[in-house]
Amino acid sequence: MSATRYRAPPAADVVLADLDELVAVFHRASGITHLVAPPVPDLLAAMAARWLTLDDLEREFELVDGDRDGLAAMLDEMAIAGLIERA
């Protein structure tokens, strides 16, 4: 079985607004507003319209201390919310 991959919507399909400690993300395809905290906006930017695996993301974000489980949990949560797609 191949590794789970994740993909975020193209950058043009999300609108971001900084709200002090949080970021409001409007997802155009669903019309749903998500309130997120860092590093979610960076993850969305990195994965915009690209299928990436956990390994890819770790490389991209240089996660040396290896909080791989935390990252995977966050991605799954984003997938359940419909903000990213999981395959």
Binding site: D18, F26, R28, G31
Partner: peptide, 24 residues
């Protein structure tokens, strides 16, 4: 904070969702 105010106002709005991006 802006985030808290935003959340409280979405809860105080009856048409935030249906206005879509205009509401956001």
């Amino acid at each position: 904070g802006a985030g808290e105010a935003f959340v409280r106002l979405t809860q105080a709005s009856t048409n935030y969702v249906i206005l879509g991006e205009r509401g956001f």
